[in-house]
Deep mutational scan, measured.
Amino acid sequence: QIFVKTLMGKTITLEVELSDTIDNVKAKIQDKEGIPPDQQRLIFAGKQLEDGRTLSDYNIQKESTLHLVL
């Protein structure tokens, strides 16, 4: 699992595989929060994550926290 922190300070827990693409992750956030993926920007280690890449491409591990910017 990974964590996604919103600017409102809310933390969302997502069940993911490290082979999941950023697209997949955004879809899971949409399922939980109702935010359309095209409005989501995910940040990790100061970098904006690109849709076609996977979590492992960015060296994101289990229990990592991503930041969601709208």
Rank of each mutant, 00 (worst) to 15 (best):
Q1T: 13
Q1N: 13
I2M: 08
I2R: 00
I2L: 06
I2D: 00
F3I: 14
F3E: 05
F3T: 08
V4C: 08
V4T: 02
K5Q: 03
K5N: 14
K5E: 14
K5I: 14
K5R: 07
K5A: 14
T6Q: 02
T6I: 05
T6A: 05
L7C: 15
L7T: 15
M8I: 11
M8F: 04
G9K: 06
G9S: 08
G9P: 13
K10H: 06
K10I: 06
T11Q: 11
T11E: 10
T11M: 14
I12L: 12
T13E: 13
L14V: 07
L14D: 00
L14A: 07
V16N: 03
E17W: 05
E17Q: 11
E17M: 06
L18T: 03
L18M: 05
L18F: 07
L18N: 02
S19M: 02
S19G: 09
S19V: 03
D20F: 12
D20T: 10
D20S: 10
T21I: 06
I22W: 01
I22V: 04
D23I: 06
D23H: 02
N24H: 07
N24C: 07
N24G: 06
V25G: 00
V25P: 00
K26E: 06
K26H: 08
A27S: 07
A27F: 08
I29N: 00
Q30L: 10
D31I: 07
K32Q: 06
K32V: 12
G34S: 04
G34E: 13
I35V: 06
I35P: 07
P36R: 03
P36M: 03
P37G: 11
P37E: 06
P37F: 13
P37I: 12
D38Y: 02
Q39L: 07
Q39T: 11
Q40A: 06
Q40R: 02
Q40W: 15
R41C: 10
R41S: 12
R41L: 14
L42G: 00
L42K: 00
F44R: 11
F44Q: 12
F44K: 07
A45H: 11
G46D: 14
G46F: 06
K47T: 15
K47N: 15
Q48H: 11
L49H: 00
L49M: 10
L49W: 01
L49Y: 01
L49D: 00
E50N: 12
D51T: 03
D51P: 09
D51R: 08
G52V: 12
R53D: 08
R53E: 12
T54R: 07
T54F: 12
T54A: 13
L55P: 01
L55M: 02
L55D: 00
L55K: 00
S56H: 02
S56W: 01
S56V: 09
S56Y: 01
D57N: 11
D57V: 10
D57Q: 08
D57K: 02
D57I: 12
N59G: 11
N59E: 13
N59C: 10
I60D: 05
I60S: 06
I60V: 07
Q61D: 14
Q61E: 12
S64P: 15
T65W: 13
L66F: 11
H67S: 09
H67A: 11
H67C: 03
V69L: 12
V69K: 15
V69R: 13
